[in-house]
Amino acid sequence: MHGEYKIPGGKLVVVDVEVADGVLSDVRVAGDFFLEPDEALPAIDAALEGAPADADTAALAARIDAALPAGTVMLGLTTEGVATAVRRALARATDWRDFDWQLIHDAPQSPVLHMALDEVMVEQVALGHRPPTLRVWEWDRPAVIIGSFQSLRNEVDQEGVARHGVEVVRRISGGGAMFAEPKSTITYSLAVPESLVSGLSFQDSYAYLDDWVLGALADMGIKAWYQPLNDIATDVGKVAGAAQKRVAAGRGAVLHHVTMSYDIDADKMVEVLRIGREKLSDKGTKSAKKRVDPLRRQTGLPREEVIARMIDSFRGRYGLTDGEVTGAELARAEELVRTKFGTPEWTARVP
């Protein structure tokens, strides 16, 4: 069995392993990391040899920690990363390059249709009717998008959204509310087979699925990192937030969508969202306006150029073919708008 894991902010770990009588055997760890002394690598292999095949990531990492020679130095490598690569091998996880990725980047659409398309895309991937897909959103009007489990009255200032003509919708994933206007954000969804994140914890899957965009930002001169649980940050502030939804149908799939602040109107944002003190204190700031830092200022590039460079970065890493929403997918999404996402019952399901 073969497993690979790119450590967020680090290097690639590769593990080849067999299982005999319920324990690991013939373990070989490799990768492009840096490790001193040389004796540390065979010590890692030996520590994993004979480990129970059902041991979790923490237990495997503890075995490695206990076996490392004194003074071991790891660069781009962690014992948790090695353990994760083992778990991915045992789960027969797939890699980004195992798939033919499709890009969808359509004309601006309504917020409620975007909500429906996300559900349709991930269901179609789960059922094997659609390849893994990167979908870049364009908005045709301002919107507040609240998380699946958020209270409508607690998160949305109804007077503010009415005054500014902002549409309020609820998505299928958890997480917090966001404010978007045409050209003010960069929003994208990944609809991926569950096998891509097999062997990863929920938290690790966020970092894993965000890693490509960290590379894209680095190519534009922005040093960014994953900030648990679901943010992307830089030295000067948060630039993006992610959310996920798991689908059990078929072979299973994961929806991972991200909204990046390009040029947010912070004054308007605080008039349409109720951002409480507890939320702000958790982020280490006293002002909601300082919670996001626009990519426009950090890159100095037009929004369209930032998107183009992100797409090029993804294509260079994993391959990407231009595609489109099929007629059947659009019809299903429009049906979901009528029966679910466009209804008061869904939007106010948590009043």
Rank of each mutant, 00 (worst) to 15 (best):
Y5S: 10
I7T: 13
P8A: 13
G9Q: 08
V14A: 12
D16K: 13
V17T: 09
V17F: 08
V23R: 15
D26H: 14
F33E: 04
D38A: 15
A40P: 06
P42F: 15
I44A: 05
I44G: 12
L48A: 12
D54K: 03
I64A: 01
P69F: 01
P69D: 04
A70V: 10
T72R: 07
M74Q: 13
T79E: 13
V82C: 13
T84M: 11
A89T: 12
W96R: 07
D100P: 03
L103G: 05
A107I: 07
P108L: 05
L113T: 06
H114Y: 05
M115E: 14
A116E: 07
L127N: 01
P131F: 02
P132N: 07
E138G: 14
E138L: 05
W139H: 12
D140E: 14
P142I: 06
R153M: 02
N154W: 01
Q158I: 14
Q158Y: 01
S173R: 13
G174V: 04
G175L: 14
A180Y: 07
Y188K: 08
E194H: 14
G199R: 12
S201W: 08
F202N: 13
D204R: 14
D204H: 13
S205P: 07
A207Q: 03
L209E: 06
D210A: 15
W212C: 03
P228C: 13
N230D: 13
D231W: 04
I232P: 08
T234Y: 04
T234V: 12
D235N: 11
V239D: 07
A240Y: 14
K245G: 01
R251M: 09
A253C: 05
S261E: 12
D263F: 05
D267Y: 08
K268M: 15
E271G: 12
E271A: 11
R274W: 10
L280T: 12
K283W: 09
A288F: 10
A288D: 05
K290L: 08
K290M: 10
D293V: 04
D293L: 04
P302M: 00
E305K: 06
E305Y: 00
V306Y: 00
I307W: 02
R309E: 02
D312P: 00
S313G: 00
S313E: 01
R315Y: 01
R317C: 02
L320M: 00
T321I: 03
T321N: 05
G323I: 01
E324Y: 00
V325T: 04
E329P: 01
R338A: 12
K340T: 01
W346S: 02
